Amino acid sequence: MSLKDRITEEIKAAMKSQDKVRLETLRSIKKVLLEKEVSVRPSGQNQLTEAQEIEALSQVAKQRRDSIEQYTNAKRQDLADKEAAELAIIETFLPAQMSDEEVESAIAQIIAQVGAASAKDMGKVMGVAMQQLKGKADGKKVQAIVKAKLGG
């Protein structure tokens, strides 16, 4: 079952259970996926690949995290809580996130693999790291760990 089909089924279930927050979130996810699907049609592709679906969901999740941070800084906990509830729903469709230890271990291997020695090599490490960890770890977390390991 494709992600789009799973979300359609979840929308039906949310409508039956009258879960307003879940319903709104699922509809917004479906909208993003449909927009992404339309954007790739000119290249001859009719459906999104799993990687493209995860990329689209990751972008939506990142937007929610950024919103939570901004609302918290603005002392609007009510809005931050709403975004957090939506983020929790979105994350159920994303691959499991790696723990800090797993991310650190993966980055250590990447640093050894590309032969990075100083903060000047951060770009090389980040390029490979984001390719390998896309959808599995937050970009800000990866960047912070790479900076710490390279002394940046």
Rank of each mutant, 00 (worst) to 15 (best):
Q131P: 00
M98Y: 07
E37N: 09
K4V: 14
I29P: 00
S105I: 10
E24L: 11
V103Q: 00
K12W: 08
A74G: 06
R27P: 04
A137D: 02
G151E: 03
E35V: 12
I89D: 04
Q70N: 11
F93R: 02
R64C: 05
V40M: 06
V146E: 01
D138F: 12
Q77W: 10
A88C: 08
G115I: 05
A144S: 10
A56E: 05
L133D: 00
R64H: 11
Q143H: 13
Q47N: 07
F93Y: 15
A117F: 06
K36Q: 13
M130S: 12
G152H: 07
G139L: 06
G44E: 08
K82F: 03
I110W: 01
E55R: 09
S118E: 07
L34V: 11
V142Q: 00
S67Y: 06
L150Y: 01
L57Y: 04
D81M: 09
S17P: 06
V103K: 01
S58W: 05
T25Y: 03
K124Y: 07
A148L: 09
P95Y: 08
A112D: 14
D78F: 05
A13N: 15
V146Q: 01
T92H: 06
Q97T: 08
S2D: 14
S43Q: 11
V103W: 00
D100I: 12
F93E: 06
V125R: 04
I110H: 00
K12D: 10
G127I: 05
K136S: 03
L26R: 01
S43H: 13
S28T: 09
S28A: 10
L3H: 10
G123P: 02
L94T: 05
A112K: 13
E69N: 11
V38K: 08
Q18G: 05
D121Q: 07
